[in-house]
Design a protein around this nucleic acid. Structure first.
Lengths: 121, 121
DNA sequence: AGTTTATACACTTTTTTTGTTGTATTTGTC
DNA sequence: GACAAATACAACAAAAAAAGTGTATAAACT
């Protein structure tokens, strides 16, 4: 009877970091989604602290990955791979700023400016 | 954007109890495998305490069940359109316009406006 | 060149998890 | 019914996880 091996918190943490970077999400953004501090995200990624069964699910959702992605050898389907490179650097930059705008009116103004810039291009 | 639900510790606990009884394993036996007290197993089954990502795997192994047995099994495969919704509707709208801007200077101006809007938010 | 952002890491305090101990209740067996 | 094993649950102390705070460094951006 072989003893089944357990994926360690360290392994899971590395997988999280890897995936997070693919999606160009900062530790802070991920932390916000989880409702923890970004320092805590660092501890998860380092394997210093152990994720509980609820937070690993939240991370999986935030990173658009199935749970199995973090526990076993898993290759993301092609469609997700494309998604990772979907936005160009400029687009990512734009989004990073845009997401910090809380006021939806301000958001709309930015959208309108983008629209007009496109129109007169 | 639908909010994906998380399987709670209580739900997982109930599933553990259910499976353990199927296999006629006592709390104490399970506790030994985990290296915790049987009182702790009770707390897991009750959902009083949260399992960490390593112990849930040990439980899955001990109960000869896949990890997915304890979490929500079904997750509709994500299609391309939804996957693109890693960005919110507002973000997608912004990107649609932004991508039509050929002139990179104009692009940068839009980025700067977004940046300033975020800053003064 | 100066500034912001992201990341890393260490230290202290608060919160949660776990062990320990104890008692009560249920379940199965004779 | 009597007995033993399994389960439930509660209270307290110890250990681990997490928050909060601070500093440092490198990379990205202006």
């Amino acid at each position: 009877m072989q003893k089944k091996k357990v994926t360690t918190s360290k392994d899971i943490g590395e997988r999280i970091k890897e995936r997070r970077k693919e999606l160009k999400i900062s530790q802070e953004e991920l932390a916000e989604i989880l409702g923890v501090t970004y320092q805590q995200v660092q501890r998860y990624e380092n394997g210093t602290n152990k994720l509980n069964v609820e937070n690993i699910q939240r991370i999986a959702n935030a990173l658009s990955a199935p749970l199995s992605y973090f526990f076993e050898v898993y290759k993301m389907p092609v469609i997700a791979e494309e998604q990772a490179h979907y936005a160009t650097p400029a687009e990512n930059k734009l989004l990073r700023h845009f997401r910090k705008i809380r006021n939806s009116n301000s958001q709309n103004i930015v959208i309108q400016i983008a629209r007009l810039a496109a129109k007169s291009d």
